[in-house]
Amino acid sequence: MTGSPDSIRDEVIALLPRLRRFARLITRDREDADDLVQLGVERALTHAAQWRSGTRVDSWLFRIMKNAWIDEVRSRSRRAAVFAPEEVGENVGVSMTERQIDRLAIEKAMSRLSEEQRLAVGLVLVEGLPYKDAAEALEIPIGTLTSRLARGREALQQLLGGAR
């Protein structure tokens, strides 16, 4: 990785599908997610000089997106309105394939995690980042990351365990 603007750009383009996936986990709304990706990408390119050569471009972008979400996007997201909490163990049977049904169950379980836990689970379990990179993206110590991860996992296991 050279860190020149062009090479960063190529890497960002290649990362777009993963950035969208992560943004959906954060925002839980597909349109908000794409808005957040766009904002994150534009910020990243504007501040490309701040990217430290030798570090991962993905966790750097995840961090920019996390900050954009917390600082400004969250407050005007479509999700800002409050829904009644969903019941646990409710019957899910909306979509056609088993995989889609399971996806729905998992999204629902994820929606019951705290935002901090969801971000930790998203970066480590879904994005597959090592603890060190996930902690850097979230700007927290590794111990904080692992305790959020442990609590998030415990909740997911309780909500989803045995369903399969």
């Binding site: 996936r21 996806r103 998992i106 379990l125 879904v126 997911l156 296991q157 399969r164």
Partner: peptide
């Protein structure tokens, strides 16, 4: 199993 299941669920997005 949980880790695999959660990861698999979001793979189609890619």
């Amino acid at each position: 199993a949980l880790r695999r299941r959660v990861a698999d669920a979001f793979t189609p997005d890619l």
